[in-house]
Design a protein around this nucleic acid. Structure first.
Lengths: 347, 347
DNA sequence: TCCCCCGTCTACAACGATGTAGCCTGGCAC
DNA sequence: GTGCCAGGCTACATCGTTGTAGACGGGGGA
């Protein structure tokens, strides 16, 4: 069927290895030889067989990205960024969805696809405290997010505590005092939920506002739907918030929706701030104030660290922890936007 | 480093081929032998080297999914569905982002990754009329969407014309007469834009409403931002619409945002309907009426057809065209929702 | 003049699995 | 007792590439 190096070699009148050398850019080849080989490749429409190269070299040119779900916009946008960053480096990305299921996350770390990829960028959700050892694997891994902290592994993360504190301070500066949180994971300490809640508490404390347990809205999965549900519960339980800090944008948008369905005005009655800076938040009504956690920076840093690991002997790589820069994007869900000019309206 | 079949064979005291036979479920193996081999596999923590198997068998267990962009929610959700459907069949999905760039779409069809995958599910945007021949490739392909129609290729698609007609009829039934379209590609006939516009025109015609060119809002890329821009242009050019049919949900949400920023009430002043039924539309304010084009059905059908192609000789596979079922999801952007009970509000 | 080195190229053996062919053993029919 | 067959297993070649070692010819330094 498809042409192999053998066919090219015969047509060009050289050895197979010379074809290989041409393909791989080996320098010591006479120009005339190189031209003949390239002509033969062109004529036969030859394509390198990646599987064979993989077998021989042990490298695949593929890195895996394991995320909970692509239908969560943050992870879709993260995947987009990772694919772009990897493409620049000539790498292909294989996306694994773990569905936040522990068993699938374990599979990713130990699984059969290891031979198919040169490394893994891993954004765990289900694995947690006590699972640190599982990350000590013998292939390149970069961890995203906040779940685990073995120092032996590269780690790219957000400044969760600081950013959450800044988000809360933004609400406090607006005069809000009854600030609800949506997406709390009770008892969690090291995960994103725990850290962001800690930032929230720091800000309240600094402002001398007591923490009211009734304002803490639980939500296991961080979807739009769970954000709406948590918001509904807060309202029905009489928490009477004047602001909401949703621990991610998807929940913030769900909460925003729920507030408006119930006739509450945002931001006048309740201000809402999210976390992630997904594109969607720019187009909600009102648009969503949020924390930009530096997604692109996280993606490109993760790819860079992974490549460094891939290129160095395991022993000589010094694991790093990188914190991306963050910023608060102030939009209409906390600050009343300039009154719009009412345009021509049809009669 | 990692154990190979050779190591397992030595430990179990059998030949390499017997190990291979055990791994592949070959039936004629004594129970005691099988047990010994399995024990050895377990002890050595042996993992099959996929690259080697690929080289030998020519199969990889990977299928490629080529989409324009994961940051477009429809494609993120489609990818999610395809990954799930493929996983059920024991296949891994490699996602390629083409960024709607013609050159990247060509690469996907002819590119080097062919050796890495057993087939391709391809959602083209940039390729168009005249490119039909490019799809006659010698490996399994299933095409999604509306761009090209060679009968020689499997094709899973939406009922674009009918669904768009139904969407427009929904608006007409609500008494709207000046229905703007957002996302028009002037001159296009076979693409999603062309077909959906055709459905729109059919509906107007059937209702005896003349088509007003000024109501056709152009947008090349179908993002939230382009939807908002097209909406702004329509309003500024004095088109005075009383309804908007956005050709996808992302643009619909952009348009919705733009309308509200300008102080227009949705649906009272302008009704909005989208197309795609992305999750996000359930949580906008108001929630978005849209066309559900049967995304899950499309994904699972595409995977099924691809597997059929992979299993049969090229000659004996009869290409099919499958149209997914659609439905209209009526929500708050066209129909005023039941007035919400105003809950306890903080003083 | 001789030797070495450099540029250019080739032969051969691997990478780790699987397909093919065939060996051996025991049981059964004749 | 012989022949045959099926079950259970093995040896070997092979997939298409790349790493290693080394061949070869010509130019420059000793």
């Amino acid at each position: 069927m498809a042409a192999t190096m053998h066919d090219v070699a015969r047509l060009a009148g050289v050895s197979i290895k010379t074809v290989s050398n041409v393909v791989n850019g080996y320098p010591y080849i006479r120009e005339t030889t190189r031209a003949r080989v390239l002509a033969a490749i062109d004529e036969l429409d030859y394509q390198l067989n990646v599987a064979a190269r993989n077998l021989r070299t042990g490298r695949t040119g593929i890195i895996a990205l394991a995320v909970p779900e692509l239908s969560l916009p943050y992870f879709a946008e993260l995947a987009d960024s990772v694919i772009e960053a990897a493409d620049v480096q000539g790498l292909t990305v294989l996306i694994e969805q773990t569905g936040s299921r522990r068993e699938r996350e374990l599979e990713v770390l130990s699984g059969a696809r290891r031979h198919l990829t040169d490394g893994l960028i891993f954004s765990p959700l289900a694995l947690g405290a006590g699972d640190e050892d599982l990350l000590r694997v013998d292939f390149p891994v970069v961890v995203l997010g906040e779940r685990m902290f073995p120092d032996s592994v590269d780690h790219v993360t957000m400044q969760n505590v600081e950013a959450a504190r800044a988000a809360t301070e933004h609400l406090i500066a607006l005069g809000r005092r009854r600030i609800a949180v949506v997406g709390v994971h009770p008892g969690e300490v090291v995960g994103s939920a725990g850290l962001r809640l800690a930032g929230y508490q720091e800000a309240l404390e600094a402002a001398g506002i007591p923490v009211d347990e009734r304002l803490l809205g639980e939500a296991g999965l961080w979807h739009r739907a769970t954000g709406a549900e948590a918001m509904a519960r807060l309202l029905e339980d009489g928490a009477e918030p004047d602001a909401v800090f949703a621990l991610n944008d998807a929940m913030a948008l769900g909460a925003l929706h729920e507030l408006q369905v119930r006739g509450l005005r945002v931001p006048q009655d309740v201000a809402v701030i999210g976390f992630d800076a997904i594109d969607e938040g720019s187009y909600s009504n009102p648009s969503l104030t949020t924390v930009d956690p530096g997604r692109e920076q996280i993606a490109s840093t993760a790819v860079r660290l992974l490549i460094e690991q891939m290129r160095s002997r395991p022993a000589e790589h010094v694991p790093q922890r990188v914190y991306a820069d963050f910023s608060i994007l102030e939009r209409g869900s906390t600050v009343v936007e300039a009154p719009a000019v009412r345009p021509r309206v049809h009669a």
